Every structure is written in C-alpha cells, then in structure tokens.
Computed example of a mutant assay.
Amino acid sequence: MTHPPPRIVAALLLTPSVLLSGCATGTQRDPTDPLEPLNRATFRFNDTLDRHIAQPVARTYNRTVPRFVRTGVDNFFSNLGDVPVMLNDFAQLRLMDGMNDLMRVAVNSTFGLLGVLDIATPAGIAKHNQDFGLTLGHYGVPAGPYLVLPLFGPSTFRDAAGFGVDQYASPVTYAKPASRNTLWGVDFVSTRARYLNATNLLEQAALDRYLFVRDAYLGRRRTQLDAGKETPLPDYNKDDGGREDGEQ
C-alpha cells in the first residue's frame, strides 16, 4: 500500500485557512461538493480514527520526546519535502523558485546534517509550498469535485491525482520497505503532534466542522493558485499559555 507524505495529512485536515475563514453553516448543497453524503461519512470515519488513535499518540509524543529532538525530526522531513516542491517549481517554470529550493536542499542536506538542522531559512533561502495538484492547476486543469480521502482528509479529484505523482518524487518512496514505513510513521506522528492546538481551535470555532474544513481547504487551494501566492502556516506549537498541547 502506498501512502502520501504524512505532512499532507495535517495540512489538509487542519489548514491555516480554517482558522482565518468564517464559520460555514447551512444545509444548501454546494455545487463543488456533489459527493457530500459520501464525503461526510468519510469525514466521520477519519475523525474517529484521529480522536482515538492519532491524537493520543501525538500527545504522548509531545510529552515524552524532548523539544529539540522534535524540532530536528520536523526539519528532517521538511528537507525531504523540499525535493518534490523543487520539482513542481521547475514543472511550473518557476525557475527562480526552483533554484531557491534546490539550494535549500543542498545546504540543509550538507551543512544541516541531512536536514536535521535548518540552515537555509536563517540564511535567507525561503521555503515554498508546491505540489503536483497545484502544477496541474497552474496549467488549467480544473479541480473537480471536492473529495474527502479515507485517512488523508480533504482533497479534490485533481489534488488526489497529484498525490501519486508527488509520492514518486519523494525520496522516502525509494527507501527499503521497512525504512520507508518507519519514516512514514514517524513523519505522521510528528506532523499530527504539531497541529494538536489547531484541533482545539477548530473545535471551538466551527458549528459544522465538515463545512468549515471543506470551505477552508478549497479557499486555500484557490489562494495558492493565485500567482503562486501562499498562505503562511501559523505556529501551532504553543497555546496561549506558552505550553505545548500534550506537555505537562
């Protein structure tokens, strides 16, 4: 079984736009979501797994793993993720962005000890966020209907097709099966742990969490396609009291 990069899971389930957009409510069917009954059932399935498995594991990870280790893990997987980002930059003929991301990978993979240390960002080498779904959109491929993927959350027909291409571009895919599966698992837990506080905010903000996440996801994807402009990810690591969710 092939899995998309786990960082996509949290990015899709808990996009920053969820926290920036208004609360979507009402029963009128959205023309972008003709599969709403099926999508809602999948959303409930994903939510059940998240509440009973992913969140408890993520909280345990936050409590037991030192902060500096978690930062190194995040940096390592972020560096791996820059490889498909770079390839999609070049595919969209964003040559300057592609060279920028190539430099990020080179600097962090060498001086940053395989990406455990993020040397590139303090050096002024910006991080971008691209994927093959955005590349297809860049060339005019329509998004198609909204689609909630089992385990992996909000998507569209176009973005779901893009997942597979990005998977082949990821260096993790070419590791030996045991190593690859371990890396996927660690990346998933690390990513989920970062977004625990975003989950708390979502619970408080949304009357209908399905509509809230759907509209936020579709809005953010439209924003990303707007001349390549991206919505920066907030730092969910700290709550209002400065304590990470899951830490004592």
Rank of each mutant, 00 (worst) to 15 (best):
T2I: 14
H3M: 13
P5G: 06
P5A: 15
R7M: 10
R7D: 08
A11N: 02
L12N: 05
L14I: 02
L14S: 03
T15S: 04
S17H: 13
V18L: 09
V18A: 12
S21F: 01
S21Y: 02
T25Q: 12
D30N: 15
T32G: 11
P34H: 08
N39M: 01
T42E: 00
R44C: 09
F45K: 10
N46F: 02
L49N: 11
L49G: 15
H52M: 10
A54S: 01
V57H: 01
V57G: 00
R59T: 13
N62G: 14
P66S: 11
R67W: 05
V69P: 07
V69I: 15
V69H: 07
V69G: 08
V73C: 09
D74A: 15
N75F: 12
F76E: 04
F76L: 15
F77L: 09
F77T: 08
S78D: 00
S78V: 05
S78A: 03
S78C: 03
N79I: 11
V85Y: 08
M86H: 01
N88H: 00
D89K: 05
F90W: 03
Q92N: 01
D97W: 03
D97V: 06
N100I: 02
D101Y: 04
N108T: 03
S109D: 04
T110M: 08
G112A: 06
L117E: 01
T121A: 01
A123V: 05
A123E: 06
G124A: 09
I125A: 06
I125W: 09
K127M: 00
H128G: 10
N129D: 02
D131V: 14
G137W: 11
H138S: 11
Y139E: 09
Y139S: 11
V141P: 09
A143S: 13
P150K: 13
L151E: 07
F152H: 01
P154F: 00
S155P: 04
T156Q: 10
A161N: 02
A161E: 00
G162E: 10
G162H: 12
F163D: 01
G164I: 10
D166Y: 12
Y174E: 06
Y174F: 07
Y174Q: 03
K176M: 03
K176L: 03
K176I: 02
P177T: 13
P177V: 13
A178L: 07
R180M: 14
R180S: 14
R180A: 14
T182V: 13
L183Q: 15
G185S: 15
V186A: 07
D187N: 10
F188G: 05
S190L: 05
R192H: 06
R194Y: 12
R194F: 13
L196M: 11
L196N: 10
L196C: 10
A198S: 11
A198F: 07
N200M: 04
L202A: 12
E203Q: 13
A205Q: 09
D208C: 10
D208P: 05
R209A: 07
F212Y: 05
V213M: 06
V213D: 05
D215K: 07
A216K: 04
G219Y: 03
R220D: 10
R222E: 05
L225V: 13
L225Y: 11
D226E: 08
G228Y: 12
G228C: 09
K229M: 14
K229R: 15
E230L: 08
P232E: 06
P234W: 12
P234K: 13
Y236C: 13
N237K: 07
K238M: 15
D239M: 07
D240T: 04
R243Y: 04
R243G: 06
G246M: 02
E247N: 00
Q248E: 13
